[in-house]
Amino acid sequence: MRFFTSENQRLATEIIGRYPKARSATIPLLHLAQEQHGWISDDAMIEVGRLVDATPAEVKGTATFYEMFKFAPVGKYLINICGTMSCQLLGADHLMHHAETKLGVVAGGTTEDGLFTLEHAECQAACTEAPTLQVNYRHQYRVTTESFDQLVDDLAAGNLDGEIPPHGTLGRVRQAIPADKSVGAVPPTEVDGPPVWLAVEGAS
């Protein structure tokens, strides 16, 4: 049994083909695995390693470096509350305390129904809108205790299903490079001169 579904296997092949070296596809393929499975299993890392010609240890070395990859199941909604300076100045600690009370878990935990995982997070590049949080990396701005409660209730009720896909899915639209319009990735060893438009005009 292959780890990836046949559709994802096709996508994986397409993604690998965009890079001059397959290894560059490691992180995109791990995202694909997390989208399919919700988290990164050992099987996922073994398969990604096979596809990019890396040992499972190398893939795990890469995967564990990055915070978005989870190595055990997490809730359908991962709630990341930012605690870095701009948010801290505007009450992030209070918001986190409230969130822990509301969800009944401490940061790092998952609610018993498996719906929510709560995490401390760091700067979310929305500092002007502090305090912020992300649900499956979708921003929520100027969050108050009231708006937090409303958000959790809406998520639980499925009111936001259209906007916030389950954990693992990032962009709901993928890049698709049409074969007839693609230049194609070439291993660096197979290039030995400047590109054609430069060759004609002269290098800068």
């Binding site: 050992d42 240890a57 795990k60 070395g61 470096f65």
Partner: peptide, 27 residues
């Protein structure tokens, strides 16, 4: 392991102050 032996079966895992050298499970 990686450059000389060509057996990259041990690797840095995790990050920062939690970085550690490890093998992959069952490998």
């Amino acid at each position: 392991a990686k450059d000389i032996a060509g057996d990259p079966l041990i690797h840095f895992m995790h990050r920062g102050n939690e970085t550690q050298v490890l093998t992959f499970p069952d490998d």
